[in-house]
Amino acid sequence: MSKQELGMGCKPLYPGVSVSYGYVPTLGAGIAFCTLFGLSMILHTAQFCWKRTWWCSVFSIGAMGEWHTLWPTPSTRIITHSHATVEVLGWAGRTWSSKCPYNSNAFLMQISTLIIAPTFFTAGIYVLLGRFIQILGRESSILKPSLYLWIFCTCDVISLVVQAIGGGMASGESNKVNGNTKPGTDVMVAGIVFQLFSITIFVLCAADFIRRSMRHQLLQRLSGSVVPLFAAMLLSIVCIYIRSIYRTIELSQGWTGYLITHESYFIGLDGAMMVVAVAIFNVLHPGWLLPSSESVGEKRDITSSADGEETNGVSSSQL
């Protein structure tokens, strides 16, 4: 039986006939991650509906969610909800492959979704930092809040397109006899490296935001504790950063490399990292921890008035 014939339907594992993964994906892992990502998505949807913080929808429906809040057209709603299942679809493909290891559709499904899935989640972090800047004031950042969305989401879209093209090229060649997957793999690596570069720039901007906020004592204006939310944002971006480094090294080794043919690395450095990156905002949700612009504005006015009185040499205790 040819490799093309094996890729159609659901064929059992044949001794001596390799699969595209280099191993048969574990059924338990596929079910577990489908469940975890599915529950997280449902919780995020319930949370942003409950708190009515509609911009938080980016954590459950991906990068296009912010466009939904700006231009809530019916067509946009359809597009955003189609992106909500990216991570779940990828792990569903791996679950499918555990039973049908040669099926080309299952392999294409997981490689084309899981490689680009983090691109959607990073948008929520970009928007979150933008919200912090809106609340604390323009002096807290080197960039305007809106620029974080435009610049970094544009970079993410570019990375997404490049990775998707590379994934399609590579998966198509993997099912051919003596197919050359190197060109597609190189394109995928280029997309991941570009994403890694853009995330690095964002991390530097976030560090500058924290530095400015501490130097100008802007965090004192906040009515609630946002330290846990800061920690959640940092943990999430670190997890995505680790995952991007892993996938870059993995694909650089080729489709027969050590990392890509050992599932434990994929589970620990891709699946687990993304679960933490997304689920942390279920526990530390911005809708609960991020103060409103109105409450911060009132406190900012009070602080400014107090500073003005002290500057004029008249404090409340002297009246």
Rank of each mutant, 00 (worst) to 15 (best):
Phe209Trp: 08
Arg212Gln: 07
Ser60Ile: 12
Arg131Ser: 08
Pro145Asn: 13
Thr261Ser: 00
Pro291Ala: 04
Ser223Trp: 04
Leu39Trp: 09
Pro118Gly: 07
Val177Asp: 14
Ala117Glu: 08
Met274Phe: 10
Val127Lys: 09
Leu234Ile: 15
Thr248Ser: 03
Ile240Trp: 11
Trp150Lys: 10
Thr256Trp: 00
Gly90Phe: 03
Ile249Asp: 02
Asp156Thr: 03
Ser315Pro: 09
Ser225Phe: 10
Phe266Trp: 00
Tyr14Asn: 11
Ile79Ser: 03
Ile142Cys: 05
Gln195Lys: 06
Met188Phe: 01
Thr200Ile: 11
Trp50Tyr: 11
Ser97Cys: 02
Gly179Met: 08
His81Ser: 08
Arg243Tyr: 10
Ser198Trp: 04
Cys239Gln: 13
Leu196Ile: 09
Thr119His: 09
Leu196Pro: 06
Ala190Asn: 06
Trp71Glu: 11
Val19Asp: 00
Val275Met: 05
Leu108His: 05
Ser104Ala: 02
Ile158Val: 15
Leu114Gln: 10
Gly166Thr: 10
Ser316Lys: 14
Ser174Arg: 04
Ile201Pro: 06
Leu196Cys: 11
Phe197Thr: 15
Asp186Pro: 03
Ile115Asn: 01
Ala279Leu: 07
Val296Lys: 03
Thr311Leu: 15
Gly137Cys: 12
Leu219Arg: 04
Ser82Asn: 07
Ile78Glu: 13
Gly179Leu: 08
Ile260Tyr: 00
Val283Phe: 15
Thr122Cys: 13
Ser97Arg: 00
Thr303Trp: 05
Thr303Gln: 10
Pro101Glu: 02
Ser198Lys: 04
Asp208Ile: 08
Leu235Tyr: 08
Ala277Leu: 12
Cys10Ile: 00
Thr113Tyr: 02
Trp71His: 15
Ile151Leu: 11
Ser174His: 01
Asn180Glu: 11
Gly166Ser: 08
Ile31Ser: 06
Leu114Phe: 06
Gly254Cys: 00
Ala84Val: 06
His83Lys: 11
Val278Arg: 14
Gly28Met: 09
Leu269Gly: 07
Val276Thr: 10
Leu143Trp: 14
Gly191Trp: 03
Val88Gln: 01
Ile240His: 09
Gln134Ile: 13
Arg138Phe: 09
